[in-house]
Design a protein around this nucleic acid. Structure first.
Lengths: 151, 151
DNA sequence: GTAAGATACTCTCATGTGAGACTAAATTCA
DNA sequence: TGAATTTAGTCTCACATGAGAGTATCTTAC
């Protein structure tokens, strides 16, 4: 555990490396659940999940919340509108930025995915006790705060 | 903390979502360090770091170690060979899979990046005490093991 | 109130990625 | 040994992404 800061780098303990690996693997495995079964891309699912949790938002807000590119969000929103999974209503405060929210159908879809998601995560963390998971998420959030300071 | 498994999903606590966000942000911020200064892409850096830590490997092994696509690795290796940052020698056990390792120049490059990387991570985890970081990495590794079981 | 600048979003274009065909080499099995 | 299968790596193609231009709208400053 004592490392020589000058010449050694242990990738297993280097967070940009190991977090990326694990996050990609998680995302790949979990996304199988909704991609095939519900025909959603990753950005589409992320938008639905955010609208479900936080309610009416603009595209810009979705970009910031889920750290997605504006082009990516624009395309995903377009497709979700076509499929009537979300609705857009004019924003009285800004005509450029319409307010997006889940449609009834979108809500129904979300309600189908949620139990699968919770079940999937329950499996993932089954090796961890409650306290360890809580601690992990708390540390994650500290790291996230730190990263956002430098932005 | 008591969540209704059937209808609610808290994205902040949902790991495929929040880990992906944080990992992407980390990777973006850290990669600025080597992309501009040393003209390396992410896959190129990951290959260099793995060869430095683990020594001589084949392309296939690099794919598995860093969870990269074989095409991505193939292209990155090609470019690193052109720039003489790595060398390839024939593998006596398998003529298809040549053994890749860092060249003197590649090693020199790596030695320049390592202190920057350690410094960067030291900043990142400066809000955490030693024990919390240790615990975090240990949990990460448990999660990683779990994910690999299902593969 | 109007001009200058900023912002939200869409679209186009260049680029990186991953799926899958292909080739060469290794392994398996009869 | 030889035929069939598997594997490592390259290449081609289709696609998703992000950068940047363009448009409409909003904000700021005078």
């Amino acid at each position: 555990m004592t490392t020589d800061n000058q010449t050694t780098l242990d990738l297993k303990q280097f967070l940009p490396y190991s977090l990326t690996n694990i996050a990609m693997q998680m995302s790949e495995q979990f996304s199988e659940l909704y991609q095939q079964q519900f025909d959603l891309t990753v950005p589409q699912w992320r938008i639905i999940a955010n609208l479900a949790q936080y309610g009416e938002r603009t595209a810009k807000e979705l970009c910031d919340m889920a750290r997605m590119d504006k082009s990516t969000v624009s395309r995903a929103v377009k497709s979700l509108l076509t499929r009537n999974l979300i609705t857009a209503k004019e924003n009285p405060k800004d005509k450029r930025a319409s307010l997006l929210s889940l449609s009834v159908e979108g809500n129904r879809l979300h309600e189908q995915i949620v139990p699968l998601a919770n079940e999937w995560q329950a499996g993932l963390v089954s090796d961890l006790d409650r306290q360890e998971l809580k601690q992990f998420i708390s540390t994650l959030s500290k790291l996230s705060n730190h990263l956002n300071k430098n932005v």
